[in-house]
Design a protein around this nucleic acid. Structure first.
Lengths: 348, 348
DNA sequence: TATAGGTAGGCAATCGATTGCCTACACGCT
DNA sequence: AGCGTGTAGGCAATCGATTGCCTACCTATA
C-alpha cells in the first residue's frame, strides 16, 4: 500500500508532496485552505488523495513553532476523587472544547513538589493557559508561570503574598457561617467541627466562621483537624465522639472528610439526626443519593468552573492584558433532614 | 532586569547563549547534562545563571521535532460525572506520572463526532499513546490511530469488526449474571431491568445475562432501556413502576442511571428493600455512603485503570511490537442491604 | 620533538510546517 | 509589440532544540 513511512513514523508534508508530485509549500496551502493562493483543482485533488493515502496528520508541535497556537489548556487540581474538583473540570471542559482547546488535566495530589514538577511541564508544553487550585506552596511554585507571563486563573484557594492574580473562589467564610448559623437556629450549642489542617489561610475561614458564629450564640465548638482524606475524616470523627460525647452536631468542613466521618457515625449506629446532627460543606453526589438527605452548603461547583474557564479564555483571546479580577462566589445552604431541631428541648 | 524577551514570548536557547556569551549548542549540552561532553565549570555556571535570569524553559514542541518523546498520553472517556471512568483516570494517572508522562484527558460525551475530532487532535499532538473508552463509532473513529500505528489501549467497551487490539475490560456478562443470580437466590421472580440502549454489543451482555439467568429460574424480566444519564434512569424507573407494579426488584445495569432511578423510588416513598429490592452494577461512592448500603457489582475500577496504563506503557517502552492482549477482569458481588429475602414468602 | 588523548566549545544540519518572495505562463487590451 | 493582471506553484528562510562533526587547545608519554 506504499505505507513504509507511516509504519515507523508519521507522514510529513514532504512525503505528501512527493507522492502528489509537488512541494511541501503547496501541500500546506492546500491543506490549510489558504485563500489568496491559487491552486488548480487538479493539484488540490492530487494533494488531498496523497494526504489521505499516507494518513497525513499535521504535527501540532511543528506548527506551533511558527507561532501557531497550541490550543492546549492545563488544569491542575489536587484531587480527582473529590467531586468538587471534577465538576470544575467538567464545567470548564465544556467551554474549552467549544473553542477548540484540548485539556491537559493533572492531579497534584496536593503535593507541592508534584505541583512544581507539573507546572514546569505545563510551561514546557507551552500550554496557552492554566487553571489551577494551588497547593500550600502555590505562590512559590507558580512564580515561574507568572514570570513568563503564562495566562493563569486560580480557582478555589488563593495565592498568598502575591501581588495580584485572577481568582475565582467560594466565599469560605460564608460557607462556615451559613452552616453554623443554621445549627444555632436549630438549637445546637455543643458542636464538633471536623476540618483539614491545610495550612491554607483562606480555607481556615470555614472554621473561623463557625467559631465566630458559635461565640455569638455562646455555643461550644470542639475542633478536630487533620488530613484531607476520607480516612482522616473517619479518625477525626471517632476522636471527637470519644472525647466529647455530649456534642449534638458535627459540622464537616470538607466533603471528602465528611464521607469518612459519616461512615464512622453509621458504624457506631449513631442515628442522624436524632443523636447527632450533621452539616457538610460541599455537595458530592452522595449527600442526597438513595436515602441520604444531608443538610449541606452548596458551593455551586459547576458555576465556579465555568467562570474560571471564561476568565482564562478572556485573557487568552484579548490582545492586551486585561485587569486582574477576583470573583468570589456565594454559597447556599441546602436544607436536608440531617439536622435535628432541638431548640424546644433546650428551652425546657 | 533584561527581560524584554520573556515578556512577549519565551526565552530561547539562543537568548540564553547570548547572555552567557556562548552558543545555543553549549547551552543545550549544559542544560541536558549530557555526559561525554566537556564543559568547564565556569561556562556551566554562566549558562545556568543566564537560564535562570531569563526564566528559560525548554519548548517541548521543538525538542519533540528531534525525535524526543512528547511524554504525553491521551485519555478519552465518555463521562466525567461517572466515577467508574474517573477512577480509571485516577489509577492510570498515578502510573503515568511516576514515569514522567502528562495526561491529556478528554471527555467525548459519548458523541462519535466529538470522539473523532478529539482523536484527530490527539494524533496532531503526537501523544505517545492513548487510552480510550470508545463510543459506538469507535472502530471507525480509531481507524486513523491504528493506521498511523499510535499505541492504544481500549478500556471497557471493545472495538468491533476490528482485527485485534489491546483491550482491558470487565466481564459484562458476569456482572449481569452474578447480580441476577443473587436476586434469584433471594426469591425474586419478577424483575425490572433498567439499562442503556447503547448500541454497544458488549454492554448488552449485562442485560442478556440477566435474561438468561431469569429464564433458567423461570423468572420474568421487564426491560426498560434509554439514555446513559441520571434523568433517563429516573424516567425508565418511573415507567417500569407504572407499567409493572408487581415487580419485586430492579436491577440497574449502569450506575449513573441507578442514581436517577433510586431518586425516583425515594420520591415515591417506595421502601428499599421492603417494597422493591435493588441491585446495581458499579460502585460509585454513594452506594455505601451515609445510610446507603446497596447491593452492587464491583467492577474493580481502579484495577482496570491500572492494567490499562501498564499495558500502554509496555507498548510504548518496548522496541518491537508486543502481542495484542485482551484482559477481561472479573467482577464481584458486594452484598448490601438493598435486597430483600423473599424466598420464604414465595414458598408459602 | 612528535604523537596521543583529554578537555572545551563552535558550526551547521536537522526535525516538520508555514509563509513571504519570486518566477512563469496565459490571457486580454492598447 | 508591450503591458497589466490573474493564475499556479516553486524556493528558501524560519521557528527552537538537538547532535554529529570539527577545531584547537593543553598535558603527558615515548
Amino acid at each position: 500500500m506504499g505505507k513504509e513511512l507511516s509504519l515507523k513514523n508519521y507522514a510529513t508534508l514532504k512525503d505528501v508532496a512527493k507522492l502528489a508530485g509537488t512541494t511541501a509549500a503547496t501541500v500546506s496551502y492546500v491543506l490549510n485552505e489558504k485563500e489568496g493562493r491559487y491552486i488548480s483543482e487538479e493539484t488540490k485533488r492530487k494533494v488531498l488523495s496523497a494526504a489521505q493515502e499516507l494518513d497525513y496528520v499535521k504535527c501540532n508541535g511543528a506548527s506551533s513553532l511558527k507561532g501557531k497556537k497550541r490550543k492546549l489548556i492545563g488544569i491542575m487540581i489536587p484531587q480527582f476523587e473529590n467531586q468538587f474538583f471534577t465538576r470544575i473540570i467538567i464545567a470548564s471542559e465544556a467551554i474549552f472544547v467549544k473553542h477548540g482547546y484540548d485539556l491537559i488535566i493533572c492531579n497534584t495530589l496536593d503535593k507541592p513538589e508534584r505541583e512544581k514538577a507539573i507546572l514546569n511541564r505545563m510551561v514546557q508544553q507551552r500550554v496557552d493557559g492554566i487553571i489551577i487550585t494551588p497547593t500550600a506552596n502555590g505562590s512559590e511554585n507558580t512564580a515561574l508561570v507568572r514570570r513568563v507571563g503564562m495566562k493563569m486563573v486560580v480557582v478555589d484557594r488563593p495565592l498568598t503574598d502575591v501581588g495580584d492574580f485572577f481568582w475565582v473562589a467560594t466565599n469560605n467564610y460564608g460557607c462556615g457561617s451559613v452552616g453554623a448559623r443554621h445549627l444555632m437556629e436549630k438549637g445546637h450549642r455543643t458542636l464538633g467541627y471536623v476540618g483539614w489542617d491545610s495550612k491554607i489561610k483562606d480555607l481556615d475561614a470555614r472554621r473561623e466562621a463557625v467559631l465566630h458564629v458559635a461565640k455569638e450564640f455562646g455555643a461550644q465548638v470542639y475542633v478536630a483537624e487533620g488530613d484531607f482524606s476520607q480516612e482522616s475524616g473517619y479518625r477525626l470523627t471517632a476522636r471527637l465522639l470519644d472525647s466529647q460525647p455530649d456534642i449534638t452536631a458535627i459540622f464537616f468542613g470538607f466533603n471528602v472528610q465528611a464521607l469518612g466521618g459519616i461512615k464512622c457515625l453509621s458504624e457506631r449506629k449513631i442515628a442522624i439526626p436524632q443523636q447527632v446532627s450533621v452539616v457538610i460543606i460541599g455537595s458530592p453526589e452522595w449527600v442526597n443519593a438513595g436515602t441520604n438527605d444531608f443538610t449541606h452548603v452548596d458551593m455551586h461547583d459547576l458555576a465556579l468552573g465555568k467562570k474560571a474557564a471564561n476568565l482564562l479564555l478572556a485573557q487568552i483571546q484579548s490582545e492586551e492584558d486585561i485587569p486582574f479580577q477576583h470573583i468570589i462566589q456565594d454559597c447556599s445552604l441546602v436544607e436536608g433532614s440531617s439536622v435535628y431541631d432541638i431548640s424546644n428541648r433546650r428551652e425546657e
